[in-house]
Nucleic acid binder design. Sequence first.
DNA 1: TTGATTTGTTCACAATAGATACAAATCTGG
DNA 2: CCAGATTTGTATCTATTGTGAACAAATCAA
Lengths: 394, 394
Amino acid sequence: MQRFTDKKADQVTVRRLNMAAILKLLRERGTLARADLAKELGMTRNTASNIVTDLLTAGLVVETEFRRVGAGRPGLLLELAHNGGFAIGAEIDISRIIVVAVDFKGKTLWRESAQINPKQAQTEIIATAEKLVRDALDWGNGENLKPLGIGVGLAGLVDAEGGTLVYAPTLGWKNLPLKQMWEKQFSVPVYLSNEANTAALGYYNYADRSKAQNLAYLSIGVGMAAGLMLEGHLFGGTGGFAGQAGHMKIRPDGEPCSCGDHGCWITEVGLTALSRKTGGQPVKPDETAQALRDGDAQLTAVVAEMAEMLGIGIVNFINLFNFDTVILGGAMRPILPFMLEKARSVVDQRALKHPRANVRIKVSGRDDDSVFGAACLVLDSIMNDPIPLVRSMI
Amino acid sequence: MQRFTDKKADQVTVRRLNMAAILKLLRERGTLARADLAKELGMTRNTASNIVTDLLTAGLVVETEFRRVGAGRPGLLLELAHNGGFAIGAEIDISRIIVVAVDFKGKTLWRESAQINPKQAQTEIIATAEKLVRDALDWGNGENLKPLGIGVGLAGLVDAEGGTLVYAPTLGWKNLPLKQMWEKQFSVPVYLSNEANTAALGYYNYADRSKAQNLAYLSIGVGMAAGLMLEGHLFGGTGGFAGQAGHMKIRPDGEPCSCGDHGCWITEVGLTALSRKTGGQPVKPDETAQALRDGDAQLTAVVAEMAEMLGIGIVNFINLFNFDTVILGGAMRPILPFMLEKARSVVDQRALKHPRANVRIKVSGRDDDSVFGAACLVLDSIMNDPIPLVRSMI
DNA sequence: TTGATTTGTTCACAATAGATACAAATCTGG
DNA sequence: CCAGATTTGTATCTATTGTGAACAAATCAA
């Protein structure tokens, strides 16, 4: 958490900020010459060149080819080094564990998953996750890549600073110091966050950042959490518990909720609500989507009603946060496209004119935003402070 | 708005950050010696001393007395200079205009107000405000204080970057480029913001900042807006329109609202709702508070019901933002103490355990948070980048 | 082919913080 | 009351880093 007095700065701070700016600009644009970096960031070619020299030595950046365009000496193009190291992303969900390995350019190169059962013992599930992480580390070792860290997205309340899973209702876990456990076991930095936060970060990392500075990622499944990206940074609130969208009261006298209260959004929208409204059977999202495609009339009506309530909740998000982007995803993703149009029209009718004017509402096109975003926790921490890594490689 | 690529840094950046850190620490602590500043901020005494020399020369800081405590040479205490300049804060409301002059230490030294009528022409109201601002400038001139700028809190949607009042429903104003107008007229920097935002900033500036990093200031009157202070910074969202709390849907099939929709929070909580629920007469908050003190049973029941809806909305705020502080204020302030206990108990019962654990809900103890906060817009901008002012005075 | 243009590097310089040393001012223990 | 310890503020030198000007290299265009 940011402190209330600002921290001091020294010359290393300057280098850190400029190095971070160069790395992020390269991530943004793909390839650029030294002169481009300098022009774009308003520094001298000299400074850009000095920093690039360090990044080349550290192996985080590579020179590729000359760019011949117009008069003048051609610039030697630079890009992030594929083999600058790799990040591991892990997602522990109610039904499965996914682990990916992502190279320094943000490309997912390795992926493995395992089904789990929430009735399994915690130690057993953790052991399964640890095996997958170890496989990822072994893979990277075989590829001769340096492991940069492990990011973990968890479905529950996470104390990111303390590195603890505080409470995961679906799994029934409490106070698990996963950061400490895994840093000891794997000897690399470990970053924890809520899976909706990592999903937001994952989306942000392949979205047009200039258009998604204020983004909500609504992860809708059995529960519903919102990952909040505000002004380009994940927002966690005082204890890191922000984004508990599912328990927004939307109909104060509504249905009872698993949280002990009633009228929560999640009682109207999500897989549990859908199950209740369709007769009590657990919902299999893919099968439900197929039934909708096949034109099941009763199901279509239920989903339309749910879309209306989805839209109303999104209206609240837009009025409160003035987002530019709202992304819908999570386990319910196959069903969400059938709700999108209705939800958008509710927003058009019921949200305030000015906040709604520039908002884009989409269903995520990918299934792995969250686990990819978990890996991005690692990459972002290096982008934001590359100095320790660079100095250690020189 | 923060850009998506970070800006470069140079040596001046370092000086700016350190100078800002020293000024903010002095604001926080009142008096400190050079050695204290250095120790507290982790810099050398040398650096602190250099910066203090500049601040003394610029007149932003003064030396007061020696501090004799324990062994060793006594430290020469420093504090912000009362006469480092003064900021003007202005609030244009539906019924009144208030203008204050605040010295560099944040003390309000001058205040004037004028009643207005929303039926008056815009030019007339603006002229009234301009007269008050000119009076404030004259006062400062008489006191031999340098004018640092004008901060304005407006009841409506404000484009802070563009310096435009986009839409003020209660006054019926649209697209007023007040920043441009007043900067031309008064030749000092002008900062615009929503009055709920300035109220949040005002509260923050006399609160314990370490305990109020994530603060919502609910300004409840005829309308209802929330000033959002997130991680110590005002949050405005993509267009600066965040915090439209009054139009959060809390009962989707509820009462019609002036926004054209229905079921908004403001249809249940606020002066308009209170008027409707008590027979249609306009509410005078002070008289209503007196009636409540006198034990008016019917009114008490209406207010209790309203307190319940107030609490439910606050629950949503807490679940979504994980605030540490929620402050209630605005035109309805005299009535709010009669609603506080009930609202708190609703939060205790209905908010999620973890987000609600460390939240403080209070009615503001002051009536002038907003106009004071408007002046703080000016002071904060100097605290955050004192270099131009300091360099211009050396 | 010659001049213009652009790139990347080199070198001297400026701004800034850090390290060390030191004088000044106070306290404490005998 | 005095000698040593302690703390403060400053002076001096050094290290880091960015800037500006100059220059060689590489390309294009007339």
